[in-house]
Amino acid sequence: MNWEQYIFEGKPFEGIYIFDVHGHVGAHKPFQLGGYDADSVAKTCRRMNVDGVVVSSLPALASDWKWGNEEVAASVDAYPGLIWGYASPNPFYEDCDITPYLDLPGFVGVKIHGDMQGSTPVNDPRYFPTYEVANERGLPVLFHAWLSAEVRAAADVARRYPNTKIILGHSGMTARDTALEVARTCDNIFIDTAISSTYDNAIEVLVDKVGADRVVYGSDICFFDCIHTMGKIALARISDTDKEKIFGLNARGLFSL
C-alpha cells in the first residue's frame, strides 16, 4: 500500500481495517476541545475511514461517573458499530457499579483514569470489583499510563487479573521504557499509540521492543486530534503487515469484534 500517496494527497486510507482503541466523548474542564460530542467524533471517524472507535466519557472520568457513562451509552446508541463504549467506574462511590453498562450492546471494555479520580492508583482495591467483572468476561481495560507508578500499578492489575487485556494508554508516555518492560513480561499487556507529540521513530521503537502484535492504534480523539497519529503509524518504517496489525487487526482480536 502506498501510504505516502494517501497522505500527501490528503486521501484517507482505504482497504485497511482501522480501529481506534482510545477515544473520548464529552468536554474536559481545563481546555477547549474542537468538537467533543458523538456527532463530531463520528464525523471525523467517517471522514478518515476509521471503522470503529472505543470511547470513554471525559466527564465520567473527571466529573459525574453516571452522567458520563450515560453519555457513552447514548453515543454508542447513536452510532452502533462505529462508536463502541468503555464503561468507567469511580472508586469513591460505593454504589458505583458499571456492570449494567457492560451488559449493554456496544460496550466492550473498561477505561480507568486514576489520576483524574483523586490520583487513585489503579490497583486500589476499590477498583477490584470492576476488574473481577472484566476478568470474568475477558474484557480489555484501558489505563491512562503516564508515569512510572501508573505503569507499575497497571502491571499489577494485569498480573492479578490475567484474563483481562490491559492496554497502557499513551505508550506509557514519560515511562515508556517501563511500559515496554512490563509488556515484555506480561502477555496480557498491550501498548497504545495515543500521544499528542512524540518524535519520529517512536512507533518503530515500540514494534522493535514488544512486537507489532502488542501495539494498538489509539488516538485520544477528541481530547486531541487523531489524524497526526495515523500519519505517524502510516509513515513509520515498519512493514505493511505490522501497520495493519497496529491500525486494527490487533484490536479486532482484543475486542473480539
Partner: peptide, 24 residues
C-alpha cells in the same frame, strides 16, 4: 518541531485536515 516533534505527524495533520486545498 523536529527532532523532538514528528514530521510524519506534522505533515499528516495538514494533509488530512478538513480544509480546502488552498488553505493547506
Amino acid at each position: 518541531n523536529l527532532p523532538t516533534g514528528s514530521a510524519t505527524a506534522a505533515v499528516s495533520l495538514v494533509c488530512f485536515a478538513d480544509i480546502s486545498k488552498e488553505e493547506k
